[in-house]
């Protein structure tokens, strides 16, 4: 099994990762969808993911260049490096209460 896993992992592209990107409230309204799967280069940062998203969805350029972002439900900075399978969320200005 270990050998199989090693072989299998070598068949996958080591140079890219897949990230689930979620959009909420006004941002989801702008792009007309609330979830997008992004294929990113390995070691891509939050900022790079946002840039790719803005280019890959309709009206993505209307999203802010530096939105508030969460990674795996934790607030994240633009320079945070992403890993395969991460969930990134673009958060419009918070308005609870």
């Amino acid at each position: 099994m270990w050998i199989f896993r090693l072989f299998f992992s070598s068949m996958q592209s080591p140079s890219s990762i897949s990230v689930r990107c979620r959009l909420f409230a006004r941002y989801a309204e702008i792009v007309g969808q609330d979830e997008v799967t992004l294929s990113l280069q390995r070691d891509a940062t939050v900022a790079q993911a946002v840039a790719v998203l803005r280019q890959s969805v309709p009206d993505g350029a209307r999203l802010p260049e530096q939105p508030m972002v969460a990674v795996n439900q934790e607030h994240a900075l633009a320079g945070q490096v992403l890993a395969d399978g991460d969930e990134i969320a673009l958060l419009p200005p918070l308005a609870g209460g």
Partner: peptide, 27 residues
Amino acid sequence: VVEQLKQRVPIWKREILETGERRWRTG
């Protein structure tokens, strides 16, 4: 807890007007 909720918890609000119109509101 109230202040932290305002700053860190992802909740959004959209006002509903008498006309039925809705508008996003920034906290």
